[in-house]
Design a protein around this nucleic acid. Structure first.
Lengths: 217, 217
DNA sequence: ATACGGTTTTACCAAATAGTTTAACTGCCT
DNA sequence: AGGCAGTTAAACTATTTGGTAAAACCGTAT
């Protein structure tokens, strides 16, 4: 008799949607209640206040992301070369965000609001922002010394890679809108995201390789 | 006797700040009035409602961006090669956003809110999203046929370049926060943004050059 | 049946807030 | 002085909304 759908979980689900769509300030408790077909009083019964409910939702999302990423990271082997590392890194990002398409929107709003929970969010993304870059940086340093990899600021490299990954999802509504105005036949399907991974990896690898072209002074 | 500071302009300035910091829903008319040392009634005297005031602010921001970009674009010459075009494109983006650091924040919130005004925003950014890419695409096609440039989807290329440019500003609060937790001596100064332009251009150019490395099947 | 936890219903409170109104004030022009 | 546009002050309305209170409802286990 395992209840797969407790009132709490239903409320959390409804609240998550509402918060994602309208943010903390814009969300309405009544709307949340309506979403999950539950009485407004029950929201306060389970979660003391709107603020606490929001925190619960935040925690849930962060936890989901953390798990998804950790799950993928265990496949990362210290013996892998830089290309494999970057590939894994990029794939983790794209795939995890793809299966949690709400996360970027949620995070963007948090950031736009000045994000009181920003540091918490950052900490939750620490595995991505710290551990992996450190591992990658080690390969980079080695590569630089051996001359196979060009001197590049790790920060800039990370900004570039993360930007290419995350912007994919940020631009989604824009691309869809443009697609409406002048159809380009763009679909956000599995193939698209796989192509994204390959393209980003390719650009990153060529970007860090020691100058194969001599179009720079 | 030119009034450089009309009541309207003062109100718009105050409103812009308030809307940027708290969004349409979060902004308070009283707070706007306080910001510019003006009576609340005057807000309604000049701008009928909160919604209209917001629209006015939106228009102002969009116009500012459009002007800044147009201004830079006139320097773009059809005879320029792909590298020059990309450099100009990237520089316009970085520099324009840098001198209007509020814009990304404002736009992100608009997008997070589902952006009723999104299509308008997109149209305003059309010169960047359409005209230039078209010009660049022409060079790309020519380069691809001649074999100097590798086959790459223009959409993916644009997502990559725009991502690297825009994420610079999106990540700003994150980088600052991380810098607090473990100081890396990162400054968002002119040198940093110039370096950003060079790095992005470099990565983009190497990314599109016909395979100089053979690390791909 | 009955006692109980979870749930609903309904009504209500208190605070915040957009917007209105009206009278008074202020500087400027004639 | 008198008038006028711009501006302020302050009280007020109407509405929304988070949160509370209390009574009733309902299924279930004892």
């Amino acid at each position: 008799m395992v209840k797969t759908e407790t009132p709490e979980s239903r409320i959390l689900a409804g609240a998550r949607q509402e918060f994602i769509e309208h943010g903390l300030g814009g969300a309405r408790m009544q709307a949340i209640a309506d979403r999950c077909g539950v009485n407004k009083a029950l929201l306060h019964y389970y979660f003391r206040s709107k603020e606490r409910l929001y925190q619960a939702v935040l925690q849930e999302i962060v936890q989901t992301m953390r798990n998804a990423i950790d799950e993928q990271l265990v496949t990362m082997n210290p013996g892998d070369d830089i290309r494999t590392l970057l590939h894994r890194f990029i794939a983790v990002y794209i795939r995890t965000l793809r299966s949690n398409p709400d996360f970027p929107r949620f995070m963007l709003r948090e950031m736009a609001d000045g994000g009181t929970n920003l540091s918490e969010l950052i900490e939750s993304v620490a595995p991505m922002l710290k551990n992996i870059p450190i591992e990658i940086n080690r390969r980079l340093s080695a590569g630089m010394e051996s001359g196979r990899i060009k001197r590049i600021s790790p920060l800039h490299l990370m900004l570039n890679i993360l930007g290419m990954c995350i912007f994919t999802f940020i631009a989604r509504p824009i691309v869809i809108e443009i697609n409406k105005q002048m159809p380009l036949g763009i679909e956000f399907d599995a193939a698209f995201f796989d192509m994204r991974i390959e393209t980003i990896l390719d650009m990153a690898m060529h970007g860090i390789a020691a100058d194969p072209l001599s179009d720079k002074g």
